[in-house]
């Protein structure tokens, strides 16, 4: 069951790296960065998951023996990671807009004044 998650996450990561390495459109590069983020989030959430576990909140009902819950820490990490990912995307897109205004293109092989 969890194996599917990990395979999916690795596929997402690989797709993201592939996009970042080969796509010349800088918007697509930003999308690649986003895909990598999703893959990472999936890995982190999967690490904390317990089959059949409940939500880690104790205030609502009484505890029964044999009850267990999913690890809350990775969920908190994922939340942070999602927020950071959103910031990265927003900032990268802002820069894309500026680059398009200045260079008149979104092709990364033409945005290369700084080289050598």
């Amino acid at each position: 069951m969890m194996l599917v998650n990990y395979i999916g996450a690795v596929l997402l990561l690989a797709t993201g790296f592939y996009v970042m390495m080969t796509k010349e459109n800088i918007i697509k590069i930003v999308i690649g960065m986003g895909i990598i983020d999703y893959g990472l989030n999936l890995i982190i959430v999967s690490i904390g998951f317990n089959e059949g576990g409940t939500a880690p909140i104790f205030t609502m009902s009484e505890l029964k023996p044999g009850m267990y819950f999913v690890d809350p820490v990775p969920q908190a990490l994922t939340l942070t990671s999602i927020v950071i990912g959103a910031c990265v995307t927003a900032m990268a897109l802002t820069l894309c807009i500026k680059l398009y205004e200045e260079y008149g293109t979104l092709n990364s092989s033409h945005i290369r004044r700084l080289r050598g």
Binding site: I29, D37, A92, L95, L99, E102, L114
Partner: peptide, 18 residues
């Protein structure tokens, strides 16, 4: 050149953070 440098920095830097 500032925006170009920043974009490259962001892309490669976020690779490191990943």
């Amino acid at each position: 050149n500032a925006r170009e440098a920043a974009f490259k920095y962001l892309v490669v830097g976020s690779l490191g953070s990943t």
